[in-house]
Design a protein around this nucleic acid. Structure first.
Length: 665
DNA sequence: GATCCTCGAGTTCG
DNA sequence: CTCGAGGATC
């Protein structure tokens, strides 16, 4: 260790920069966090005492501070934009054009890499020192965001190795998906606005006036090329990437050089399937002619290089008009607002509808009927409305829930502190109808779906569960769209459903706060409906998952005369109100263990896997927590469950591990 | 009283 | 899958 402050400061800068690069660029830490912090503090102390020693490349400059305004800066070489193609055919046509212009029949070699959905930046290095970082802007002029850029630890403040006199390094700043989730969790507790997606969050972070906030965001970068340069020359695109990597820049490990357009096309299609494997969002693949000589000969058209294309797939977000907000009343009486939209393509499917959850949510997002809105289909399938598109709204009125039920006219209630509005009328047609629709699912009735139930309801043929079991084939055949065969099948299916387990019957009765799990707990605890009817609130509260409130709900439900009559009628029709063997929780080698299943398994359906685990005494739940014994991950697992498991250090089991568990324990 | 955990409810498209 | 809310736990 040197005692000369100047030498020691240089030594520390060197050490800390290497540690940062190892951690953020190479993903291979060389230093304990605590050691890093101690050395960092030492450097801060030296620099505070000797301000003349503060160097442009000092890691202490990554901490951030305030700046008033972003200066406009001119890029030394313009940052072009990319012509896009959306099909394999488009790629081939481009390749034809490239070869014609080059006057060759030979295959052209290409470099491709994921197209990061982030923010393009230009990093200017002079003699190896980062002197400026700017946004892309209009391609000619960008904004100087140097203080913010310096806080991104994956960006070297000084290049490795022999530096050229000047080089503009181009890259895409992005927020990892995991970082985005964490950020939103943190912001959820504050008044700050949540960003709808990682790209917007990254953009907002990079344009912070207070770079200390930027420093707090886990931004990173993938570097993909160079603009203006003096003192270094390259022959190929791929060679350029190698050079950048050797000089301390984070280049994407999936960048690859391919010998023909056919290989390129295959890889592009492949990436569309693999994009969810990455911890960053990509909206396509960038394809470039590898030879820089060929690039020069092809040139640029309207600031778009002829030697590169963005292969983009269907976007996961889109803008469309919100036509109307409609209300649906659920089987519990809850009022559910949902959006009717101008049909729009999002992620390859046409979207026209989305739920809007509740009044508060709609107004918090600032959505009004008539607005242009942003629709998103993120990792999962279900579309959501993110918010209005742009500041100019067309909608005039803030959304208000109706004061009276659209079906029965009863006055709507909303208990203080609750999010949902409710129609309190227990005889409201919505409840009866939705209960019936729900029952077809609970009791596994095929051949009678939602549409049929709606028709039967409207004709007055089926207005209650017992009505369904009194339905005859003759009545069905008279309905439009029902022939002899399908009517017979439907009746048989209804008949079979009388045999569903007691717990399922309980579930289908539509008792408040009783779902899958609680219905089973009730069934196995009491065994028969008579014992359940006779139970006091205190006795019900002893059942797993029940407290005073839910116990009260259940007892109240069974105290109601109409409900009791319903139970008796269904029992008379032959439905089961006693639990069989299968409903008692098994004791076994896995008792006390809790598993979560995600993705698709090869050997089992998820229900089978659940049943097999439960048969050995295990519990299977829907979300990962610290109490989870293991996460069983099949094909295409849910990303949120995986990251949660990784963070809470819950072991992740493959299908092979599951088989082991089932076979050998 | 706060925090974590688990359950229930509603849900899109093809 | 995600949200809200009741229950359990410290």
């Amino acid at each position: 260790m040197s005692s000369d402050p100047k030498a020691r400061a240089a030594e520390l800068r060197e050490l800390l920069s290497r540690a940062l690069a190892a951690y953020h660029v190479e993903d291979a830490p060389i230093m304990e966090d605590a050691v890093y912090d101690a050395l960092f503090d030492e450097l801060v102390a030296i620099e505070a005492e000797h301000p003349e020693l503060v160097a442009a490349d000092s890691p202490t400059r990554r901490v951030g501070g305030l700046s008033d305004k972003f200066q406009k800066v001119q890029h030394l070489e313009p940052m072009g934009s990319l012509e896009k193609v959306t099909t394999e055919e488009g790629l081939r046509k481009w390749d034809d054009d490239v070869r014609k212009r080059l006057g060759t029949d030979e295959q052209v070699a290409y470099v491709l890499e994921p197209k990061i959905d982030g923010l393009a930046v230009n990093l200017t290095y002079e003699d190896g020192i980062l002197v400026r970082g700017s946004t892309r802007g209009d391609g000619v002029q960008g904004e100087d965001v140097s203080p913010n850029i310096r806080t991104i630890k994956a960006i070297p403040l000084r290049m490795n190795g022999e530096p050229p006199a000047v080089i503009e390094v181009r890259g895409e700043v992005y927020l990892p998906v995991s970082g985005f989730r964490e950020l939103n969790e943190r912001l959820a507790g504050t008044s700050q606005k949540l960003a709808p997606n990682p790209r917007n969050a990254a953009a907002g972070s990079l344009r912070q006036k207070n770079s200390a906030i930027t420093a707090d965001r886990p931004l990173s970068i993938w570097v993909y090329g160079a603009g203006h340069r003096e003192g270094v020359e390259f022959e190929t695109q791929f060679g350029m990437l190698d050079w950048l990597r050797e000089h301390g820049f984070r280049t994407n490990p999936y960048a690859q050089r391919l010998e023909s357009i056919e290989e390129v096309a295959a890889a592009c299609v492949e990436w569309e399937k693999r994009r969810l494997e990455l911890d960053y969002e990509i909206d396509g693949v960038v394809v470039k002619v590898d030879s820089l000589d060929q690039q020069r000969r092809l040139g640029v058209l309207h600031s778009r290089p002829r030697w590169a294309r963005a292969y983009k797939w269907a976007p996961m977000t889109a803008v469309t008009r919100l036509l109307e907000i409609r209300i649906r009343v659920g089987r519990t009486g809850a009022l559910n607002p949902w959006a009717i939209m101008e049909p729009v393509q999002v992620g390859g499917v046409t979207v026209t509808r989305a739920t809007l959850h509740n009044e508060e949510d709609i107004n918090r997002k600032g959505i009004r009927a008539g607005d242009d809105v942003i629709v998103q289909r993120a990792g999962d399938v279900i579309p959501q409305i993110v918010g209005p598109a742009g500041p100019h709204r067309r909608g005039t009125k803030e959304f208000r829930m109706p004061t009276h039920c659209p079906l029965c006219g009863t006055e709507i209630v909303k208990p203080e502190g609750e999010a949902t509005h409710r129609c309190p009328n227990r005889a409201c047609p919505s409840r009866g109808l939705e209960t019936l629709i729900n029952w077809t699912g609970v009791a596994d009735i095929d051949g009678v779906g939602e549409q049929t139930i709606r028709i039967l309801w409207e004709k007055g043929l089926v207005r209650s569960l017992p009505d369904l079991y009194r339905l005859t084939k003759e009545q069905l055949v008279e309905l439009e769209g029902f022939a002899e065969i399908s009517a017979t099948a439907a009746i048989a299916s209804i008949e079979r459903s009388k045999d569903v387990a007691f717990s399922r019957v309980l579930l289908g009765l539509n008792i408040p706060s009783i779902g899958w799990v609680l219905a089973r707990n009730l069934a196995s605890h009491f065994g028969t409906v008579d014992r359940l009817i006779a139970a006091t609130p205190e006795e019900v509260a002893e059942v797993e998952g029940f407290g005073a409130d839910r116990a009260e709900d259940v007892v109240e439900w069974f105290a109601d005369e109409q409900n009791c009559a319903l139970v008796e009628e269904l029992r008379g029709l032959g439905l089961r109100f006693e639990s069989g063997e299968e409903e008692r929780p098994a004791e076994g080698p896995l008792t006390g263990n809790t598993y979560v299943i995600t993705g698709t398994l090869e050997r089992f359906s998820r229900e089978e896997a659940t049943a097999r685990l439960e048969a050995l005494g295990a519990k299977v739940t829907g979300s990962v927590s610290a109490k989870t014994t293991g996460l069983v991950a099949g094909e295409e697992p849910g990303a949120s469950k995986l990251t949660k498991a990784q963070r809470s250090e819950v072991p992740i089991l493959g299908e092979a591990d599951l088989l082991n568990l089932l076979g050998e324990s």
